[in-house]
Design a protein around this nucleic acid. Structure first.
Lengths: 349, 349
DNA sequence: ATGAAAGCGCTAACAA
DNA sequence: TTGTTAGCGCTTTCAT
């Protein structure tokens, strides 16, 4: 027996669909007696509301979309879990869109589901075209950038920002305080790419310590374990005297540690490695990775909150769509250093 | 300007909605001239079909649901990615349901979306109640168990089965062939739990080698890195003469390697460790984990395929719903051993 | 307090 | 070849 419809419940209870709908949503006045009868019918028939139909009638959409480059990249599942938790009990569900880092794939998703299946879109560094995102917005589906890296330079789209420059600075400062001054940098993006702010933080810290950060051996590489691995090999090969590696993300940091292990470097005795983010893996590696923890779960929660607010202002329900350009930037709490086993005092030359 | 409706496109093209619908789906004959006009109108207005409305009219649902205990557990994102890839271009999207291993949470998801938002349900070891699943089925939403561990003992629900007993046997045989005979076992479930078949494979291999597997020190522990870590510490503490650890899953294996490292054991020189599954992390650990690779991507593809077939037989479209009890068990190709750096010849006593 | 009716955006017979 | 008419399951005025 397929799920009964609201109409069948109504018939069973001897009322009209409107009444059933009313008891279901607590709208309109309903007599105590009939309410009970309706509730009984619902229970008896095992009625469950048809979400798409309800959404259609309400002019809403039953899901939110989360755009990620690849859910298999260890950062995103953690983020997705937090998003899903935030969504729980809102009556909306989470659709995962893997863009593969390809703007065309990303656009295809937006075209298909934004505003129809999904009421709003959460975007992580999925390499989407900003024009596509703005078009999505203008079609009525709010967009929130989930991990914007520069709180002071909003992107012109609603976002939740994390102070990644500070994260970079904290990581570098940690190294410096341990006495390191020959430190290499592994940046998980192009020079002007997504990790630039983190690298700037590194440079700031070096400068503050009277060191010439710009002279530090630096490699720009893909933001992956493999990228970090390759970069570390190259860095360590060319500059065997380095005592520490600054890395803009945990995955490359983990890769760098593997490279160090394969090269016979003792981490942290001969070489310190520090990352940024504090994904789960960071505490599970051996040696455990020292890193700068970033409030990802908090960011996920804020992103969902912001998205829902934007929807409330935009949707059919909105009285007047006020220009929301104001409060569309949330900033998370600050990153903080987590010292584990991959960093130690610089070896005295 | 919110997305235009099909009716607006029709008006713009000077035809009726039915005609637009026809050109959109290639049904019914449409004159070449009008088709062009309609296409032009679609392009001009930037029309995009409203997925829930379409699904409602078609009597389908616009998504598939994937039930996982936690998307943050490293195995599931890999599986989810494969599922999403298999779904791509089917016009359906993937909803992630984290059950947290809690049957009640799982039931809540099924109640809400199975058959309404989601046309079918893919289930991994999310610890769901089989009665709930059967009820879901009987309400018209097909269910597929995605990683059934015993091809020879189907569960009474459609499933794709992986020969995990064989996986366990291969892992154990590998150890035996390397000359290990004092091997401990770490099982990532209760004795009668999900990993029992893998453990049986271990016992089979031991027996075949004339060893008393039942006498092997064994610990049943949660299927996590931490579980493996704790189990290995205990095992190694009580039996410091063990030369190898058999593990029913990669995560506990990785945990066991960490424990070994913390205890000062040299892996693989003093201690070999082998896992099962071959998740990405397995090749990224140091030493890289020897393991038995299981065809997860293949399983994901088969699961989606099977689910779609079941839907085709069940849906409103089905001519006659034939009893599908027959072909509802897919078996993947066999697991295979992947030797990496965590296993070596047993040290000669 | 309840019912009647229209409509959300789309599809699918069936007519013309 | 195209248009007409219902209807998918639900919500929501507006009457009664």
């Amino acid at each position: 027996m397929p799920t009964p419809t609201l109409a069948e419940v109504a018939r069973h209870a001897g009322v009209t669909p409107a009444t059933v709908s009313n008891v279901l949503r607590g709208r309109g006045r309903v007599g105590e007696a009939t309410r009970e009868r309706v509730l009984a019918a619902i229970a008896a028939l095992g009625y469950r509301p048809h979400l798409p139909a309800r959404a259609l009638a309400e002019g809403r959409a039953p899901t939110m979309a989360l755009m990620v480059p690849s859910i298999a990249n260890p950062f995103y599942p953690e983020f997705a879990l937090a998003v899903e938790n935030a969504l729980r009990n809102t009556g909306q569900f989470l659709i995962i869109c893997n863009t593969d880092g390809d703007p065309v794939t990303g656009r295809a998703y937006l075209e298909q589901i934004a505003g129809t299946l999904s009421e709003g879109v959460l975007v992580t560094n999925a390499n989407l075209d900003f024009d596509d995102l703005r078009r999505t917005e203008s079609r009525g589906a709010p967009v929130v950038l989930c991990m914007w890296e520069r709180p002071l330079e909003p992107p012109g789209l609603p976002c939740v920002a994390v102070d990644f420059r500070l994260a970079g600075e904290l990581a570098a400062r940690h190294l410096i305080e341990l006495g390191h001054w020959r430190v290499g940098a592994i940046v998980g993006s192009k020079a002007t790419g997504i990790h630039a702010a983190r690298y700037e933080g590194f440079l700031d810290a070096m400068r503050a310590a009277g060191l010439d950060g710009a002279a530090a051996p630096t490699i720009f590489t893909p933001d992956t374990t493999q990228g970090g691995y390759a970069a570390a090999r190259e860095l360590l090969g060319r500059h065997p005297d380095l005592t520490a590696l600054f890395t803009t993300n945990d995955l490359p940091a983990l890769g760098a540690m593997q490279a160090a292990a394969d090269l016979g470097f003792d981490v942290p005795r001969q070489l310190s490695v520090v990352g940024i983010t504090d994904i789960q893996l960071a505490s599970e590696s051996r040696p455990a990775l020292s890193t700068v923890a970033v409030p990802t779960a908090e960011a996920a929660g804020l992103a969902v909150k912001l998205l829902r607010e934007l929807i409330a202002q935009t949707g059919r329900a909105a009285k007047e769509r006020k220009a929301p350009r104001e409060a569309t930037v949330c900033v998370t709490s600050a990153p903080r250093l987590v010292v584990r086993a991959s960093t130690a005092r610089a070896p005295t030359a």
